[in-house]
């Protein structure tokens, strides 16, 4: 069964709650991250109360990455995951930090230099929908809080499937649907009123954070995304809810 979610049917797609021309979404998303890049890490901590560190930590555990492997962190932004993977794969392994946005990548590169982690990491500007890597070349791909920004998610999943080695694993960490209605309500109130205000104060940009809140709501829920991952050809697919389903990590293996 094909999932209908996120099919780019006519020539428009979602940008938060707006509809924009399919060709325009990438540019609009870029503006958002250009605007927040410098303060991105501070906002991440503030917005999630530090929780994003735990979500990422569990995702890295699920990756089961071993020394010597090749890992791609796509939509890797400022390089949180890449830095951790760099240590796990060791000198014989390799990590690619990739993102469509050069402003995010340059903040990421600076941070990795500060951490002295660049020796086994390459930084590549790339679009998740058209990954510039060879077929069957990567052991593990992670995409953290990135998939919802991609114009055609199915295309991106297919592209990730293509570059993974057989037996390789994909992990998608993304905001999802809280399991309890109460939590869902509190969370909505938080993301639609508090987030833009915090964004305004810290980055002087409430629109970008309104987009973030809206894009979270627009993102497919756990089971829909699970279907999408399966449709892209992955096997052994499953997901783990975290923090009551505010966030979920989906896993798929290339058969």
């Amino acid at each position: 069964m094909m999932s209908t979610h996120d099919k780019v049917t006519d020539d428009t797609t979602d940008f938060g709650f707006e509809r924009v021309k399919t060709g325009e979404k990438a540019g609009r998303v870029r503006e958002v991250f250009d605007s927040v890049a410098a303060r991105y890490d501070v906002m991440n901590d503030l917005m999630s109360g530090g929780m994003h560190r735990l979500w990422k930590r569990f995702t890295i555990e699920l990756s089961a990455v071993r020394p010597g492997q090749t890992v791609l962190d796509i939509a890797g932004g400022t390089g949180d995951l890449a830095a951790k993977f760099s240590k796990l794969v060791g000198a014989d392994g390799h990590v690619v930090l990739a993102d469509i946005n050069s402003a995010m990548l340059s903040v990421g590169r600076d941070r990795l230099i500060d951490k002295g982690a660049l020796s086994n990491i390459s930084v590549v500007q790339a679009d998740a929908q058209y990954l510039p890597f060879e077929d069957n070349s990567i052991d593990c791909i992670t995409i953290a809080f990135g998939l919802r920004n991609v114009t055609d998610k199915n295309k991106a999943l297919a592209s990730m499937h293509r570059v993974l080695k057989p037996g390789g694993r994909l992990l998608v960490l993304e905001f999802s649907k809280p399991v309890s209605p109460l939590l869902s309500k509190i969370y909505d109130t938080y993301s639609f009123s508090a987030l833009p205000v915090m964004g305004k104060i810290i980055t002087d940009d409430s629109d970008s954070y309104r987009y973030l809140a809206e894009s979270i709501r627009k993102h497919p829920d756990q089971d829909t995304l699970l279907n999408m991952v399966e449709d892209a050809g992955f096997v052994d697919c499953r997901y783990h809810n975290m923090t009551g389903g505010i966030v979920a990590v989906h896993r798929g293996i290339k058969g």
Binding site: L54, W55, R57, F58, E61, M242, T243, G244, V249
Partner: peptide, 12 residues
């Protein structure tokens, strides 16, 4: 258990 909570315990 919530994996995020366990991850917190492990981190600590």
């Amino acid at each position: 258990h919530d994996p995020a909570v366990i991850a917190g315990v492990c981190l600590v």
